[in-house]
Design a protein around this nucleic acid. Sequence first.
DNA 1: ACTATGCCCTGGGTGC
DNA 2: TGCACCCAGGGCATAG
Length: 276
Amino acid sequence: MPELPEVETIRRDLEPRVVGRRIERVAIHPGGERVAITHAPRELEAQLAGLRIEELGRHGKYLLVHLDDDRTWVVHLRMTGLLLLRPLEESSGRFERARIDFDDGTGLRFEDSRKFGTWHLVEDPREAFPRAGPDALSAGFTVAWLREALGRRSVPVKTALLDQRVAAGVGNIYADEALWLAGIDPRAASNGIGPRRVRRLHGAVQQALLDGLGDRGSSFDRYRDAFGKSGGHHLRVHVFRRDGEPCERDRCRGRRISRTRIGGRATHYCGSCQRP
DNA sequence: ACTATGCCCTGGGTGC
DNA sequence: TGCACCCAGGGCATAG
């Protein structure tokens, strides 16, 4: 599940290798047509062809490919999407849904086994994510913003953290990790978290994402970077998918990590050090 | 305005 | 080995 750290890893991998490249040809393969949101597949292929990549940006889990006609190709990988940089002659992977060929003998392969990924081609990137809040690693994501956002909801804090209007880029892995770092029970009511704990949670969200980024992302399932390599953070998480294993905090005395379901999402936490 | 639910999609795991 | 079933989940539409 590519979340902010995974998308940022891909962005950093690609930036020096695709900026300045011209898109020679785009092919959306049969069965992969649903990726095209803003245009019909053939139209999107035609519109992208010939454009030069000027800059790579990111907002939350959206990768922003800024093009030289002042439009932006906005890619969301959802659960199983991958963007792989490959030589043009290399054969297609089993789950390749589209390919983007550049003018330098390389290209991007878009693989997506579940076909949930999306492509927008827009004048303004915001068109692709009109409701998203500030990127969780941007200066706009402040303690005051989080306090305000959490205060307006009565849902469990875990659910609030997954809401991209609160903090764009946080997904299931890093929400669980942030709540563990902050020592907050994921079932606690969002608007019941006191100011001091909100401040703590704000720092924990940033820390969880930076920890993931430092390990080049988490590869629990399919995630791979732009070179096809796994991230390392799934080996270093504190709670995510570690149910049944002991909490690593000394004061929890080996208390096992619990797993439950909150807002339809698998949720992992320590019942000892994470308090309501 | 808020919250809850269902939908999309298919590989991989489980149980028989 | 085969087969039915269930789960994973981000973001959106819809309903309450």
